[in-house]
Computed example of a mutant assay.
Amino acid sequence: MKTIYLIRHAQSVVNAGDDTEVVTYANADIPITELGQQQAEQLAIWLMEHVENVKEIFVSPYLRTQQTAAPYVQKMQLLPTVLDDLHEFNYLSFSKIKGKTFQELRNQAQCYWATNDTNFRDGEDCDSFASFFNRINHIREYFLEKTDGVYVVYGHGFWIGVLLWQLLGRYSDELDMQKFREFELLIRPKNTDVFVWQIDAHIESIAKIRK
């Protein structure tokens, strides 16, 4: 059996921002806040106390997962593996949102979800919803092929949302972005929430164990 501790990153500057703040960072470069650093330290202590025999630690290519993992990586003295397919849903082009207020960003995000076009890409630096959905499938296949054991994975909110959507069977063969958005708003993980995702042969289960 594979037991995967799946964690949403600590508070980022975007998570903490109010409506008047301005978009400064591209998605990949968003750092965690001072509070986020405290959360990462507390999380590392919790993991050391509750998780044993960890074989490998994984992070996305995005800065906020790597900063969140850093205290635990240091304690464990394990070099984390970067998995590209773990990166967050990048659905708004940075060139179109840079310098806009967070309120303008949220308005633009609402327009994106309202299109309900799973193949639409806002720019060359963006995913389509369909390609993002498939990335989560790739990671599921990746861990299915891993040897049995315990793994710790630092990821992102939308990413975890799609995994939950898949594992809980909330989607049909035809993807519906608006239905996912409704689901995601209801279950969105908080910063440093921890889920246990288990894979036993081809049977998968997931549950939140820390919030």
Rank of each mutant, 00 (worst) to 15 (best):
D18W: 04
D18M: 05
T20L: 09
T20E: 08
E21V: 02
V22Q: 05
V22T: 15
V22N: 03
V23C: 04
V23D: 00
V23N: 01
V23E: 00
T24A: 06
T24R: 05
T24F: 01
T24L: 02
Y25E: 12
A26Q: 09
A26I: 03
A26G: 07
N27K: 12
N27Q: 11
N27T: 14
N27W: 09
A28W: 04
D29H: 14
D29A: 15
D29V: 11
D29Y: 12
D29S: 14
I30E: 04
I30Q: 05
I30R: 10
P31V: 10
P31A: 05
I32A: 01
I32D: 00
I32P: 08
T33D: 02
T33S: 05
T33H: 06
T33E: 03
T33M: 03
T33Y: 07
E34W: 09
E34I: 13
L35C: 01
L35W: 03
L35P: 00
L35T: 15
G36W: 00
G36M: 02
G36S: 04
Q37M: 07
Q38N: 12
Q38P: 00
Q38R: 15
Q38W: 13
Q39P: 08
Q39R: 07
Q39N: 07
Q39W: 05
A40D: 06
A40S: 14
A40I: 09
A40Q: 10
A40V: 08
A40H: 08
E41C: 06
E41M: 09
E41V: 15
E41H: 12
Q42Y: 14
Q42A: 12
L43Y: 04
A44N: 09
A44S: 15
A44P: 10
A44T: 12
A44V: 07
A44E: 08
I45L: 13
W46A: 04
L47D: 10
L47H: 13
M48Q: 14
M48C: 12
M48K: 14
E49Q: 15
E49G: 02
E49C: 03
H50Y: 08
H50K: 15
V51L: 01
V51F: 08
E52Q: 11
E52D: 11
E52N: 11
E52G: 01
E52T: 10
E52W: 00
N53K: 15
N53L: 09
V54L: 05
K55M: 11
K55A: 10
K55S: 14
K55T: 12
K55I: 04
E56V: 02
E56L: 08
E56I: 01
I57W: 05
I57F: 01
I57V: 12
I57S: 03
F58D: 01
F58V: 04
V59D: 02
V59L: 05
V59C: 14
S60R: 10
S60D: 09
S60E: 12
P61I: 07
P61G: 01
P61F: 07
Y62R: 01
Y62M: 13
L63E: 02
L63K: 11
L63A: 02
R64L: 05
R64W: 06
T65Y: 13
Q66V: 02
Q66F: 02
Q66G: 04
Q66E: 05
Q67F: 07
Q67A: 06
T68A: 04
A69I: 03
